[in-house]
Design a binder for these strands. Structure first.
Lengths: 223, 223
DNA sequence: CCAAAAGTGTTTTCCATACACCCATGC
DNA sequence: GCATGGGTGTATGGAAAACACTTTTGG
């Protein structure tokens, strides 16, 4: 058993695929989703892959939890400071980092639109519809694609979409999130019935919008 | 960047939670599922956790894919040689191995009943209903529980249950698999309609069973 | 004949969808 | 009033569940 500790062994890093929602200005004819799903990338300043766009992340210290490590690296590289995260997948291709064998524990993260506006200085949000045009480093295009698929899948049977909205939100905002992620429109009446079991109404309403105020909802406790 | 390579960094290992089905002798009154779900464990021969029951697995070599590593370790510890596997989760608690920081990339595996009978010499199959009574090493009880939950969830929207059966099987066998994993009974007529889209009938039948022969099915191509 | 399991047809319930319509605000 | 988006009731089609029944073997 002892001899294993002398072996050269892989490095471990974390990477985070952070998504947010960007609301578009409403068009007069309502034909397309009114929001975009965006992913957070930063530009690498050193080799390898200098100047490519990369997912925030970094090497895992010897006694550090990856959940803690990824929050720390995320803050260092993008200033995002407190964000919902869950483990996505562990990527292990021996060639994914040209410097050494590095396995990456990837996380899927979601942040609401209001907070996402704070982070444009050090990092940049990219529309997920344009993933194919981004000049990615490492295997980060692949990781981002896996994350997008996971998000599209999990939004349909969990309430994780609520992490893309502020604490209080309208059902139309929530519907825009679903439409941006799944790329298809729902009917308001049906959508409302579908999500009623994950939200709870408040006494408050939106105001000054030039139309009927919308009731504000919060996440329902104990699913 | 260079300095990271001098850091003390975590070890990486793999662990596999291999499930199989054990058919029970039919009872006269058909009230309970006719099969058990079982998990493969081996008894550790060295410290730490000597004599406890553990999941097969081992340390990852510097240039080895974890999928290759786990098949190799699985064969070494249990003689299981070719088994369907998919990544389950990566377990990272810094205290999970008392010797050192070791993160574990865990796999979920399935093997059919006929083949599972070959492996009782080096390893042992445990009924998953008795997980709480097993003396596990490391965090392997937790890993096994996560694997069981994942299996129960994925069986409902994928065709992975077919990996627990031989190439040709009857619909009753398939129903027993579902009932053993989910712990509830279905009606034959409804169950058949539900799985028809994942199976394809053959020209062959069971025989000599003392009742009407059952048509044999195979996995349907291209889902 | 009977026991046992395989296999099928029909009814009922429920839920997703579609669609039609009303409501409340700013201007 | 009217434009705009918020919000609701009802009809409908299809799947899932419940139930009743027939078929084919061995003994």
């Amino acid at each position: 058993m002892q001899e294993i500790f002398e072996y050269e062994h892989p490095f471990v890093c974390t990477d985070a695929v952070i998504f947010t929602i960007q609301t578009k200005e409403p068009s007069s004819y309502r034909k397309l989703p009114e929001a975009n799903l965006r992913v957070l990338l930063y530009q690498r300043e050193s080799e390898p892959f200098k100047d490519t766009w990369c997912l925030p992340g970094g090497f895992l210290n010897i006694d550090e939890l990856p959940e803690v490590n990824i929050q720390r690296k995320l803050f260092a590289k993008t200033e995002v400071d407190d964000c919902w995260l869950e483990q996505l997948y562990t990527f292990c291709d021996p060639k994914r980092d040209p410097r050494a064998r590095v396995i990456s524990i990837a996380y899927l993260g979601l942040i609401d639109e209001e907070r996402s506006r704070e982070f444009e200085s050090k990092a940049k949000w990219f529309d997920t519809k344009e993933l194919s045009q981004i000049n990615f480093g490492f295997d980060h295009r692949h990781i981002a694609e896996v994350a997008l698929e996971r998000l599209q899948s999990k939004i349909q049977y969990t309430n994780i979409a609520l992490h893309l909205l502020p604490k209080e939100f309208t059902l139309t905002q929530l519907q825009n999130v679903y439409e941006a992620i799944l790329g298809k429109k729902d009917q308001a009446a049906n959508f409302r019935r579908k999500v009623m079991n994950m939200v709870q109404e408040t006494e408050r309403y939106t105001a000054d919008k030039g139309h009927r105020p919308a009731k504000l909802y919060i996440k329902k406790r104990q699913d």
